[in-house]
Write a protein that binds this DNA or RNA. Structure first.
Lengths: 188, 188
DNA sequence: GCATCAATGACACTTGGTGTCATCACCCTA
DNA sequence: TAGGGTGATGACACCAAGTGTCATTGATGC
């Protein structure tokens, strides 16, 4: 038993999510989050960079999974197929907890400032993918191009999956989105 | 001669840009901007939603140009070609003042919070394009998909144009980026 | 001249976020 | 077993972004 209750970060994160869902993101102050977690405002900012960071702290493992999938994809695969593989791996991870994901997304979709943060995080993910592609020998600009285009397809697939609960597995929607992109860009 | 100097909004915008360039975005307070423009902090927020808004207020005409180009494109053109046309129209507009654009972009690239805002603005532009495509009879999800993919190619082209001053006309870089996307997605 | 209106100023207030120092439990070592 | 780090937290002051509200002021229309 420590002087402090264990898992301060986890308590803060849970308290924040509860309040964000209950009363909305901007009707929640950091002081309230900290109080609910039995801590102080200052301590909140020691665990999370800012109020929005709570919603996006879980993306780190996602990045690892995607980058590994891209790096370990068969050398014979064309770049776009490699990106597709990586993003399907992400989809697999995401769809493990559909309810949590959808609740989180509802909070994000209700606040522009959270969508801003979401977009930079996804852009960072695209940059990671591009770096992994460069590691496979692809030139910098083509790598970035195919990574960003893949992320675009992924974003649309994710939105579609969120919007339509009967949509099935996210991996499947992502794969379809990739194929549809290929078809429509080719001249469909 | 009014009680107040004319063009308060313009003065605020110019003052803000000067200070952002001179000393950096977050070393500039709204009070300083207002003072330099001969106004008060409160008046700044009557003309701009927030400190970042100054950098993105000029995007409205861009949206109009792109949406019109998409709406008026020949009916026979496939969707991706239509998006390409729209974004080339945007490129044409942007490349009219290369120095201003590059200075503005240098400020944005130096601050993550500004990149956040840039990404939502571009996402909004993609949403506008998707809406224009729906107006041409395309279904919602494919419209969004091709609009987002086109914006991805545009973003990469723009970054490439900014990074390489000898790159020539932005319209040309955008067109090449679109073609490269098509080639690489098809299986290059 | 007089009422109205739009733009600005003045001012208080909330909140996010940071800097700084004190405190307290735990651990290691002599 | 005493004592000195160490790391996490609390306490507190502080700055700057952004908002609500009311007063002021010049222009405009009647």
């Amino acid at each position: 038993m420590g002087r402090w209750e264990p898992n301060a970060r986890g308590r803060l994160g849970r308290a924040a999510m509860e309040l964000y869902v209950e009363r909305g993101f901007d009707q929640t102050t950091v002081a309230e989050i900290a109080e609910q977690a039995g801590l102080t405002k200052r301590t909140f900012f020691r665990h999370y960079a800012d109020k929005r960071d709570v919603l996006f702290a879980g993306m780190a493992p996602l990045r690892e999974v995607v980058v590994r999938a891209v790096a370990e994809a068969p050398a014979s695969l064309p770049p776009f197929a490699v990106v597709s593989l990586g993003l399907e791996a992400a989809a697999e991870m995401i769809q493990e907890r559909p309810e949590d994901v959808k609740m989180r997304q509802a909070v994000i979709d209700a606040h522009l400032e959270l969508q801003e943060r979401e977009l930079v995080k996804l852009a960072a993910l695209a940059a990671d993918i591009a770096a992994a592609l460069r590691g496979r020998g692809l030139d910098a600009w083509p790598a970035r191009l195919v990574a960003e285009a893949g992320m675009a397809a992924f974003r649309v697939a994710f939105a579609r999956w969120i919007a339509n609960s009967a949509e099935g597995l996210l991996t499947q929607v992502v794969r379809e989105s990739m194929e549809e992109l290929e078809a429509t860009v080719t001249g469909g």
